[in-house]
């Protein structure tokens, strides 16, 4: 009876897990070895899709962009988040009000905020460029690769910074205040306390945040799709947006699946590291 109950309890989850995770993933892996056009039956072609990707300039660039987006976006965001968390952890007037205002970008709807960014950075008529040109500074826009990537990363940091700041702040607040008081009595200044108390005690949480944020950022689709649609000249595509373009715009699900499957080992490795850290 005990076994039956156990099975009944976990059955819905196992069923949904197979239906929503295992089945689509298996199909995706299978499609990556086939020539699969939308609505047609797949034809097995072995590794041809992967060979094609290996020489595809757009895919190589999207791979590089993904590394750049994740590498810079996650690390800059978390370094700033840690510094801000430290700032919010101290006692000063209006702390709670500023903290409340600081969180605002996080609950904003993603698409609306992206469209606002799109218009703010419009090269010809955006408010940012109006201010820059009024100050005699060069304009910045989504029409050039470097600037477009900068704006994409900037949005990512702006949007997600509050969440990670609050997470790290929660971690900082768990550090006993007595340790800081003892250090202060021993003559430590703020920098030393941050270096020798805060950092070692927050290290594990920081690493978990980094890995988690990396996994989430790897799957980010909206930022690039709404801001640039992969342009100019397909130069700012991430793997996720390029795979969507091939799958649903060009109707080539074989190549699209191969793009994702090619990047899968990297994501699985990150998840394994995360699980090891969390000792799950």
């Amino acid at each position: 009876m005990e076994k039956l109950y156990t099975f009944l309890f976990i059955f819905p989850f196992i069923f949904l897990f197979i239906l929503l995770i295992i089945y689509p993933l298996s199909i995706e892996i299978y499609y990556s070895f086939t020539e699969k056009k939308a609505g047609l039956e797949p034809i097995f072609i072995g590794l041809k899709n992967f060979v094609y990707l290996f020489f595809n300039k757009d895919y190589i660039r999207s791979f590089f962009n993904t590394m750049l987006f994740v590498g810079l976006g996650v690390n800059i965001k978390l370094i700033i988040a840690l510094l801000l968390a430290n700032f919010f952890n101290s006692n000063f007037k209006f702390n709670r009000i500023i903290r409340g205002l600081f969180i605002l970008p996080w609950p904003l709807p993603i698409i609306s905020s992206l469209i606002i960014f799109y218009w703010m950075f419009d090269y010809d008529w955006g408010v940012v460029n109006y201010i820059l040109s009024s100050l005699g500074l060069p304009k910045i826009g989504l029409g050039r690769y470097n600037e477009a990537m900068f704006i994409i990363i900037l949005y990512h940091i702006w949007k997600n910074l509050p969440f990670w700041t609050i997470t790290l702040l929660a971690g900082l607040q768990r550090i006993p205040i007595e340790i800081y008081e003892a250090a202060r009595i021993d003559g430590s200044d703020s920098l030393k306390m941050f270096r020798y108390i805060t950092l070692p005690l927050i290290k594990n949480l920081y690493l978990v945040c980094t890995i988690l944020s990396t996994i989430w950022t790897l799957g980010d689709f909206n930022t690039v799709w709404v801001l640039t649609k992969g342009g100019p000249a397909d130069s700012t595509h991430l793997i996720s947006t390029l795979a969507f373009r091939y799958g649903f715009e060009l109707g080539d699900l074989g190549i699209s699946s191969a793009m994702i499957v090619f990047a899968l080992p990297m994501i699985i490795a990150l998840i394994l590291i995360l699980l090891k850290f969390l000792k799950i």
Binding site: D122, L142, G143
Partner: peptide, 9 residues
Amino acid sequence: IPPGATTWT
């Protein structure tokens, strides 16, 4: 031509 034309949808 407006510089932003390279990103127009």
